[in-house]
Design a protein around this nucleic acid. Sequence first.
DNA 1: CACCAAGTCATACTAAAGTACCAAAGCACT
DNA 2: AGTGCTTTGGTACTTTAGTATGACTTGGTG
Lengths: 136, 136
Amino acid sequence: MKKTILIFGMLILALLLLFQFSKYAVISGSLKVELIVAVIAIVFFFIGVFINKKSLKPNQTESAEINHNKIKDLEISSREYEVLLHISEGLSNKEIGEKLFLSESTIKTHVSNLFLKLNAKRRTQAVQIAKACKII
Amino acid sequence: MKKTILIFGMLILALLLLFQFSKYAVISGSLKVELIVAVIAIVFFFIGVFINKKSLKPNQTESAEINHNKIKDLEISSREYEVLLHISEGLSNKEIGEKLFLSESTIKTHVSNLFLKLNAKRRTQAVQIAKACKII
DNA sequence: CACCAAGTCATACTAAAGTACCAAAGCACT
DNA sequence: AGTGCTTTGGTACTTTAGTATGACTTGGTG
């Protein structure tokens, strides 16, 4: 956030300088009007491209970015989250247990708790909800 | 594609007009230099935003496109595909049956055939494989 | 017409998944 | 030292899911 403010501040400063310079140049007649207009056009064009890229980046990565706050909101513990990830990989409770060196009953407990927190009735539904919440 | 060319043609035309107008206005002194510079800056800024948006759109939708050829390769029938979509939504066999006005046993048959074709053992795994294949 | 693939449905069974309830160890915090 | 939370694990039970097999219908194709 601080970086953004700094960059925008610098941008505005540069623009003011450009503005003043163009006015001075026109009045003094040291430069052609076309050239100044062209420079301003190009500069603002790239500013437009730049700002748009900045504002679109979150949209692009949003689908792939994990919403950590949502996980906390749902009160999902770290162990439960691990289990959730393995569920989304298509593993069975037994397989998850073997991967995490836990018994199947422990996994079942975690899964049941996950369903309560995600408001799901099936593991497929849990995966769907988790993806909709951008948790996985 | 034709649309894009048309739009860009119009844009260039509009810019030339703006350019000529600004030159004329400055020479005749009917408008202040600041105003013209500001207008040009704003116009080019929005052009930058617009072009950037256009060029970024394909990148955004690329990841969501469905590979129809893959479905045919796997010999997945249309009914089976319907069932697959509902599985990915987190529905149970009974719920899918109710949605498609079919009995639960029919859904089970489709699901079993899907698992053979997708080489899956569980519905969660089937969803994961289908997503990896860009089928859903 | 005969044949085939797709779709439908049923029964019977096994294997997972999921629920409910309990219990205990470990930890951080006060 | 007590409290609350997570993590772990168990038993017992119900519900889905998944497999295997067979049967019937239908629309298109050789």
